[in-house]
Amino acid sequence: MNNILKYLRKGELALFIIFLIVFIIFSFSSEYFFTLRNIMNVSGQLSIILIAAIGFSVLLIAGEVDISIGSLLAFVSLPLIEIMNITGSVPLGIILCLIFGIIIGLINGYLSVYLGVSSLIVTLGMLFILRGAVYLYTGQRAIPDELMSDFFFYIGNGKFMGTIPYAAIIGLVILLIFIFVMRNTSYGRKLYAVGGNQEVARLAGYNIKLLKLSAFVICSFLSSISAIILASRIGSANHVAGDLFEFQVVAAVVLGGVSLAGGIGSLTGAAIGVLILSVISNGLGLLNIDTQWQLVVNGVIIIIAVGFDELKRNR
């Protein structure tokens, strides 16, 4: 335990304590909450947000933003389901889905970094374009997975040894990989430097444009993985999938201490942010509290967490 605590920096420790408090409250309030089954359920559900939040954090750390990830979620599930339905091959569907994700990341990145349009505006435009394209293609209906492959079903619904959801394992593996990359590789450190002080990074001879472009691609790529898990869970490419997703991700990541200004924050923090919001949502659900209160609680928590952080910094 001591070792874990040492790994968490000051801000993360505070978050972790919030998380524990929330956890304990719910454990006392609902007997079902602190059961293996529920915990495993939550971990499966949150992995969709977690994976996208990792990519989103990487991009924020590099000093850019992508608010089109919700629309992207719906968009890339089209090639996934369609290709699977047509060819009968799950891997082919997945590969195409990921390629589409990468291409969108490249487009977002190219427009922002190489043409110099603010990434907020580029991805706001992309948000409209992708959602519109999804509506256009689907005629505003969900496209069901007709292949019904077990393999695909298991991605989002299966459990390792009957207990641990595969989705949670995928999320955890990706999290660990990117924690390592951001902390312990020169590439990760360069992303921090670029987001922290672009001028310094430029003078250190970094290829800032390429670094940022890569962060855009990572963000879209990981969001596409979230899309695959989501599509597997709901068994279709849904035209309204990922609605408000970008806001959920921003909320979790910012709660986790990743700064919108770039260069500050960690993936551990972001993950704890996702954890807190997911646990609250699950706990409130178990307590039969109107699910809509979750939104209210999330909003209040974000203001308190970020406001508290700012007040502390200004002291």
């Binding site: 590789t185 450190r189 921090y192 002080n197 310094v200």
Partner: peptide
């Protein structure tokens, strides 16, 4: 001052040439 304020002293000094292995691990 042109340093990355979130980084350690050592990281800043080797900013343009981090010591890594062939895979880019610090």
């Amino acid at each position: 001052i042109s340093l990355i304020s979130e980084f350690s002293v050592a990281e800043n000094i080797f900013l343009d040439n981090f010591p890594t292995n062939s895979l880019g691990v610090m």
